[in-house]
């Protein structure tokens, strides 16, 4: 493992500071609620982006891992009476186990098989959550107890936001370390060309499996925190449309970019709120905005802006172009 560069440490510090300052700037708890949801979506997206942006694999069922985490926390805390942190870890273990088995089954195949497997698995999970009324409350969902740590009970929207913000900083940190590690470089090689990577002696299936499991755990943790933040879970959280939304977030923010994950997650979390007043025109406008972003920034928002920023920078520096090439793949936070 390489230690991360000062730049990346600074980026993490800036993010942490911004997240810490947000409650002071936020006019009222509603904005914190939005920030909580954006942070949690960003955590899922950072994991998903490792899978899609680096290893080149698509998942159409990531919301299911979010749902597994959320319901593990809900059921274990509300019905079994386990302490939330342990419930969260249990959710992670279940998600990781499912991801591992799925990856071993389909990742030896080339092509979009992971996408199909995750799609099928995701829908089955949401059907089970819907049908097993005795355990999950069925379509009406179920209430979740407050989060507590070492017997200290948390209250209100602040606690949910705090947990989500900490999770986001940790996720960013983990992702950066991961991307710059030997594993990360191997993954990037896989994403660029599997055949070449294989030629270099990289055990592709093992790396892909690893990153898939990690991305599932990210989603699961976000789900657990969500359950405590909203104190309510419903099967819609694990639904197919949510999975598609996560994919849209990373593509719009920028594949292979940690910052892109955060930008995409934030944008698509805020968009429904911004368009809430447009009544009948809401769906139409949302679709239009998605299409326009993709037409004008096909590589995603963050990579496109970085590339144009760099181009601008280079133009005003006649001597010595920036050493870095513009590939659309960036790893900084």
């Amino acid at each position: 493992m390489t230690s991360d560069t000062p730049r990346q440490l600074i980026a993490c510090a800036v993010l942490a500071t911004a997240l810490a300052l947000l409650p002071i700037v936020a006019p009222n708890p509603y904005y914190l609620d939005l920030a909580t949801k954006a942070c949690l979506a960003a955590v899922v997206c950072i994991g998903l982006n490792l899978l899609s942006g680096y290893a080149g694999q698509l998942s159409l069922g990531h919301a299911a891992f979010f749902g597994v985490g959320a319901y593990a926390s809900a059921i274990l805390c509300a019905k079994v009476g386990i302490t939330p942190v342990v419930a969260m870890l249990a959710g992670c273990l279940i998600s990781a186990g499912i991801a591992y088995v799925m990856a071993r089954t389909v990742l030896r195949l080339k092509g979009h098989y992971l996408a199909m497997a995750t799609l099928a698995f995701g829908v089955i999970i949401s059907i089970v959550l819907n049908r097993e009324v005795a355990l999950t409350g069925g379509p009406d969902g179920m209430s979740v107890p407050r989060f507590n740590l070492f017997g200290y009970r948390t209250t209100g929207v602040w606690a949910g936001y705090g947990l989500a913000a900490v999770a986001l900083v940790l996720a960013v940190r983990t992702a950066i370390v991961f991307v710059n590690s030997r594993v990360g470089r191997a993954l990037r090689a896989i994403g660029d060309s599997e055949v070449a990577a294989e030629g270099l002696g990289i055990d592709i299936a093992r790396y892909k499996t690893g990153v898939f499991v990690i991305s599932a755990v990210f989603a699961s943790v976000a789900g657990s925190i969500f359950a405590h933040a909203d104190r309510f879970v419903s099967p819609a959280e694990a639904g197919f449309m949510r999975s598609v939304e996560f994919v849209a977030m990373i593509v719009i923010g920028g594949l292979g970019s940690v910052a892109g994950s955060i930008v995409g997650a934030t944008l698509l979390t805020l968009l429904p709120q911004l368009l809430a007043g447009f009544d009948h025109y809401r769906h139409f406008l949302t679709g239009l905005i998605l299409i326009l972003i993709m037409i004008f920034m096909p590589a995603g928002i963050v990579p496109t802006l970085l590339a144009s920023g760099r181009a601008l920078h280079d133009r005003y520096r006649p001597f010595g172009r920036s050493a870095r090439s513009v590939t659309g793949r960036t790893s900084e936070g």
């Binding site: 899609s52 698509l58 598609v244 994919v247 849209a248 593509v251 719009i252 594949l255 009948h280 025109y281 809401r282 769906h283 139409f284 406008l285 949302t286 679709g287 239009l288 905005i289 998605l290 299409i291 993709m294 037409i295 096909p298 590589a299």
Partner: peptide, 30 residues
Amino acid sequence: AIAQAKNASVLTIIIITIGAGMMLRGAAEI
């Protein structure tokens, strides 16, 4: 839409179709 996104990856095209689906749903709703 799709032909306008130059050098777009398959994923970008997928997101465009998602956006188009929402627009069509929205148009039908209107």
